[in-house]
Design a protein around this nucleic acid. Structure first.
Lengths: 248, 248
DNA sequence: ACAAAAGTGTTTTAACTACACCCATGG
DNA sequence: CCATGGGTGTAGTTAAAACACTTTTGT
């Protein structure tokens, strides 16, 4: 991927080269069949490889890291360049560095995972070399990218249960039903609307607006926003500086 | 740290170089004052830097990654070389890659964190260039290593509460009181022995041996072991292959 | 017998689950 | 009016916290 000028023996003994990749998740309305509204599905964009190794196989978007950009900046940039996407949430996932993960060249990939809202996802130019796939039904990808996606999926699903990242799939304001649909899609199971409402309203970060949504053929639901998550107990490294852990 | 042959302009535009560092935790008996037995304390080994930048400052043990070793292998090797330590637990923490974290050279550090048992910790040759420090009372370290330790501490403390890593501070068998003391030291607070016992015994991985410890001036406590944690629900990536996430 | 830690039982509290029920709107 | 989802109330379950209590050893 990098180190373009180097013969084989030099490459073999050179230190591993670095690359960034990102697993980007978005939500699509599931295939509604008969009565059942159907759960939403997680989709992610992949890029077709145009040079060896793994020519024509699908792979995670990414690329090298410039000398003057942080890891997070590199993830953002390579994402924008390859898919036109600006994610609402971006977090480091893991550094993958098995020796044999790339055929000849030794590459260590620092992988991020990201969430984009449905509207933004539409902007991603779906061309011959960029395509969206259902996260649960991927083809065989290049490198170890299938495993990486699996791990990112696991991380997303576990983190959704104890944090408040889910709203990043949605716009600035949303109804509790929409938010619940996000949870249901990610977790793959129905959730009791009554209990869900109570749990969410218990969270201090969720704030009710004074607006409601009219037009439905039922009682108009209230719109909510998400407040600053800075108050929450976070890891000791501040978000002010770039490329620091953003877990909680 | 690496790329020894390159003039400044070349270094500036070269891709970031890679390094491994590890935060190693061990437990020491706390300073018992009057009646109170005193909680144990977390200590970690640091190495003195012998060349610029940050000459004579203390830093996390680590080094470059060889072309034919995985990230985890590199962590193990550099740990053994610099401190003689063989940790019982090793997990990737985070990749730190802020542009300005090293003065002139651009270095991305993939940081691991490790637990060693007290006996093993004694083996670490404490010399002029390796010394143990109390994790809560560190001097000013080289690079961003103070922040890295803080983050590793946060990770250790949060993970102890929902996983079963604590026994890695102890030997093969241990009493519940010893295990409780580990929890108390890491979390920094006393724990009810009765409730602690129930919680631990509820975990399937903890198995009681038929041995007890005699010699104390009280009822002899039972010895316990830890069984294979493979049965637990783990992240999708198997541990069989190296350098894959080892979270749970 | 006594001290001290091992180990058990019991009450209280908090949080979540399941599900019955009422409310507000469009048709 | 009815259908539909928004929103509330409430009983049952489970897990943890607090703490009284019993057991087994060494001295």
């Amino acid at each position: 991927m990098t180190l373009p000028t180097a013969n084989i023996s030099e490459r073999q003994y050179a230190p591993p080269s670095l690359a960034i990749s990102t697993v980007i998740f978005s939500l699509r309305n599931g295939t509604a069949q008969q009565d059942e509204p159907g759960l939403g599905e997680l989709w992610l964009p992949l890029v077709r490889r145009t040079r060896p190794p793994y020519v024509d196989r699908w792979a995670l978007p990414g690329g090298p890291i410039a000398w003057d950009e942080s890891l997070e900046d590199a993830a953002h940039r390579s994402l924008l360049e390859t898919t036109q996407l600006r994610p609402r949430y971006l977090e480091q996932l893991y550094a993958f560095g098995a020796v044999e993960r790339s055929p000849d060249l030794r590459v260590v990939s620092i992988v991020y995972w990201a969430l984009v809202q449905a509207g933004e996802a539409a902007k991603a130019t779906e061309g011959d070399n960029v395509r969206w796939f259902a996260a649960d039904d991927l083809p065989q990808l290049a490198f170890d990218h299938n495993q990486i996606v699996e791990y990112a999926l696991w991380r997303l699903r576990t983190k959704v249960e104890y944090s408040t990242i889910a709203h990043n799939f949605l716009g600035e304001t949303f109804t509790l039903a929409q938010l619940r649909e996000v949870y249901e899609a990610v977790l793959g199971r129905r959730i009791d609307p009554a209990n869900f409402r109570r749990q969410m309203r218990a969270s201090k970060d969720l704030i009710a607006t004074d607006q409601t949504v009219t037009g439905g053929k039922h009682r108009p639901p209230r719109l909510y926003r998400f407040g600053d998550p800075t108050a929450a107990q976070s890891p000791p490294l501040t978000r002010a500086q770039s490329a620091t852990p953003s877990e909680d």
